[in-house]
Design a protein around this nucleic acid. Structure first.
Lengths: 172, 172
DNA sequence: ATACGAACTGTTATAATATGACAAGTACCA
DNA sequence: TGGTACTTGTCATATTATAACAGTTCGTAT
């Protein structure tokens, strides 16, 4: 906790992520959420897993697996790819982290706790990523799936474009 | 053309792709579409590009770049990765082929000619892929983007689950 | 016809992303 | 305390992708 912490009721929505916000408190609460979830489910929130989640929360951007590996090595963990991939697999599997397929990279979930289908907005200029909510079963895809008899289990929804900041720059 | 060809008005929708259909005619017409498009735009529909598109149309499934490379080599083209990647880049760039990010693989467009935002249904059991239409700007993502001031240029929409066939099998 | 530039092809080499397999350590429970 | 499932770290390797450069082809303007 730093002197910048604030009560939980401040920017509780933050639907976007292109705005700045209080990292210290969102990190702490996300870690606490993960810890509680693991306790409830009988999962082992081991040091390397916790560290990986902390790194993603602290960076607040999408990291490649090898960037994660570097960070974990610096923190004193193993230095071979499976170390990073296994931690990330655990975190993704439990919904604490999402994989951005378009970037082959990983980002901490912005809505921990909520069961959700994430959607992402990826800026092609600065690589920033914001998380929103998708509504898979609704819309054209849901209809097509029902018509085809396809049983949707998971959706990847990623929009690529320009974030407000980069959009302003390119308008110049 | 084979004896199985049929008039263009038969299954004109084929919104799904989990159904079988007349490959010979859909291949021929897709190639013709691509040829016409390139002629109009002053693009060069070279032998290796044409062959790559033919291969994807014939296979009617998502192929990895190295599978494509093998097929191109067998057809007498170069045998190094850039050969495949460059042909695929051209085809994707012109909308004749889509990349399935979830699979790092490529599939021929099922709706050639139409300007569209594709959406895919990917069977996790048999890896079959069907293409549908997405409606990016509508729905929750479009709203979030407008609220955030994010300018969407392209969307990746991929649903993972079970196709009708595999779904029936797993119900047993 | 010919010279020119842009685009294309093929190659070598290497980068970036990801997984299989195994040995050693740890947690938990019977 | 012994067994079992899980976790970690490592080595080795597979898979996916791109940079750079030389030679060729294409279209066009002389």
């Amino acid at each position: 906790m730093t002197s910048t912490s604030r009560p939980d009721d401040a920017p509780s929505t933050d639907p976007v992520g292109f705005e700045s916000h209080d990292h210290a408190s969102c990190i702490a609460s996300a870690i606490a959420e993960a810890e509680a979830h693991c306790a409830r489910e009988g999962l082992r929130f081991t040091p390397v897993r916790r560290k990986a989640l902390e790194i993603l929360l602290r960076e607040h951007r999408a990291l490649g697996a090898y960037e994660m590996l570097d960070a974990l090595r610096e923190a004193g963990f193993g230095s071979q790819p499976p170390v990073a991939y296994r931690a990330l697999e655990f975190l993704v599997g439990n919904g604490f982290v999402h994989k951005i397929e378009r970037l082959n990279a990983f980002i901490a979930c912005a809505h921990p706790g909520a069961t959700h289908s994430p959607a992402f907005m990826i800026c092609r200029a600065c690589d920033s990523v914001a998380e929103a909510q998708a509504t898979p079963a609704r819309g054209a895809l849901g209809e097509a799936a029902r018509a085809a008899g396809f049983r949707i289990e998971r959706t990847v929804v990623e929009a690529e474009g320009l974030c407000p900041t980069c959009s302003d720059k390119s308008d110049t």
